[in-house]
């Protein structure tokens, strides 16, 4: 890859551990904590508690949280419920599209261990094997107060630097990729896009 040389020794990747960035790290953390934008991708049944959260009664905009359609501009990904293999493919693609640093909040019992669908043939049992979860909220379905609590928890973790799912995903990419390929089969990214073109 000759083009890569233009980026210098960084290989096109910004290393947040560089000294220049460390100086401003507290400011960055504060800014990240106070402006969490959510990807508007409500998977599963928990999506129904998003409108109450976003409107008058629970109003999460006072914490700087806002739903945003584009994954490129979002920081927080809410997995609002059970995940089927078909959705998990889209979740992984959307998660990889998001810019670092990104945080992932699993909502409900189902992403933790399958919940009520523990014996279902079409529900992923442990989401943490495929993408890194920062905070998980138990319950079916969690009340908006519980979700708010989870969001406060993620804010605290951003401040202390514990919310490092995006770093884990980068460092252990081989592990996550292996699990994903084991579930979906090799080359699923290319196959999924091509599958539908025959119908059109």
């Amino acid at each position: 890859m000759d083009e890569r040389k233009d980026f210098g020794e960084n290989d096109g990747v910004i290393h947040y551990e560089l000294q220049e960035f460390k100086l401003f790290e507290p400011l960055f953390k504060w800014a990240r904590k106070k402006s969490l934008w959510i990807v508007a991708f409500c998977t599963g049944c928990g999506g129904i508690e998003m409108p109450p959260l976003a409107t008058a009664r629970y109003d999460f905009e006072r914490f700087g949280i806002m739903p945003n359609p584009a994954p490129r501009m979002a920081d927080l990904f809410l997995i609002t419920g059970y995940v089927t293999p078909k959705t998990l493919k889209r979740i992984i693609i959307t998660y990889e599209m998001m810019q670092d640093p990104k945080y992932l909040l699993a909502h409900g019992s189902c992403p933790i261990n399958g919940g009520v669908y523990w014996d279902s043939y079409n529900v992923v049992k442990q989401l943490d094997k495929y993408i890194p979860i920062d905070v998980a909220i138990a319950g079916c379905m969690p009340r908006p107060e519980a979700v708010m609590d989870g969001i406060m928890e993620i804010m605290r973790k951003i401040e202390t630097g514990e919310a490092d799912g995006w770093k884990r995903y980068r460092e252990n990419y081989e592990y996550y990729r292996r699990n994903q390929d084991k579930l979906f089969g090799e080359g699923w990214r290319e196959k999924e896009a091509k599958r539908w073109l025959a119908w059109i």
């Binding site: 599963g44 089927t84 078909k86 669908y117 014996d119 279902s120 043939y121 079409n122 539908w196 119908w199």
Partner: peptide, 15 residues
């Protein structure tokens, strides 16, 4: 338009 549902299939009828 081709509809592609199935993102929420949990197999209720089998369960």
């Amino acid at each position: 338009a081709i509809v592609n549902p199935g993102f929420l299939h949990r197999g209720f009828e089998k369960l």
